[in-house]
Each structure stands twice: as C-alpha cells, then as structure tokens.
Amino acid sequence: MKAPLSVAVAIAIGLVVLLGYFMPFERLTSLRIVLLDWAVILAAVALLVGIGNLIYVHWRKSVRAQGESVHSVALLVSLFLTLGVVGWFSPTHPYSLWIFNNIQVPIESSLLAILAVLLAYALVRLLRRRMDRFSLVFVATVVIVLIGTAPLLGFDFPILGDLRSWLAEIPAVGGARGILLGIALGIIATGVRILIGADRPYGG
C-alpha cells in the first residue's frame, strides 16, 4: 500500500457516506450531504482539469502534425472562440445561445440521425458476423417492434401491434429486470471492494 493516508481518507469518507444512507442519525445524514456536495464541486473542478488536458492533447497533436491535425486545430480554434464569447458576454447572452443553438445542437442532432442509419446497417452486419439463435431472436424482435410501432407504407398490422405490445411488456421487461439485478449485484460488489481498499481507483 503506497499511499496509506489517501487510502484511509477515501475509505473513511466512503464508509461515512454509506452509513449516512442507512442510519437515521441527523448528524451523519448532514455530514453525508456535505461530503456529497464537496464531491459535486470537485467533479466540476475535475471537468476544468479535463478541458485543460483536452487542450494539451490537441495542442501536441497540432504541433506534431500527428494524424488528422487539422481536426485538432479546428477543435482548439472553436474551443477558444466559444470560451471567449461565453466568458466575455455570459452563458445566457444571445451570442452564446446562438453558438449553442446553431452549432452544437445541429451537430449533435446530425450525429443522432446518422445513428439511425448506422444501427440499421449494424443489424444486417450482426447476422453476417454472428449468425446464432440469439442474433436471430434479436433481429426478429427489432423488426417486429419497428413494424408494430410505425405502420409500414400506410398499412397497419394489428397482429404485429399486439405482438409488439406483448414483447415490450412481458419478455423485454423480464429480461431488462434480470440484467438490472445482475448489474445491481455488480455495483454493490464493486463498491464494497473499493470500501475495503481492495480496488483503489484513486491511485493509492
């Protein structure tokens, strides 16, 4: 154990927050809320550090002309322009909102639109890559749910609509709950490993 102090602090704070959830003592609950507020503030500071890292990485890529360095230059120019506009005017000024509504939102919406095509293509590729019964069930379910949700060329298929409802309400909910139970067990196990110091993602 190379950093016993950081490990001890992390474990102690983790245990206090955990106990704050289960024990109805007002002081413990208040302490938990204060510690969680600190965590939120630290996460915001970490975002600033992360942006510093983003600038550093793309600066080095631009200087080295590594890969598509023009993308890095474009990123740095737009980042500093946005920072300048938002910092000079304010985040709610019309200029700042113009950048958000006319650049950020359309680009992210375009990526979302690409996803629809990409997922349809991925479905076909799935059958080519892994033709087993799970893939067939997956593809059949997707097709039934899609046709059952939106009428195809104006034709309505009531049987498919009923089948879609049954699939969405019974097997899909059952499967999702099964997966969520497994994930919940995994989350508890991961949390306990960190609290006993067996896993130290904070580098101790």
Binding site: L126, R129, L180, G186, I187
Partner: peptide, 22 residues
Amino acid sequence: VPGQAVLFATANETLIGEETFA
C-alpha cells in the same frame, strides 16, 4: 440497458449485465 442492446448489435463481443463487473 438500451446501451447493451446497441452494443449487442455493434460490438464484436458484448459483456451482458454483471459480466461487465467481472
């Protein structure tokens, strides 16, 4: 959970549910 459905269709190998934590 919706992310897992996307991964099943697009990744070469998918970890389902608790497998991710293993």
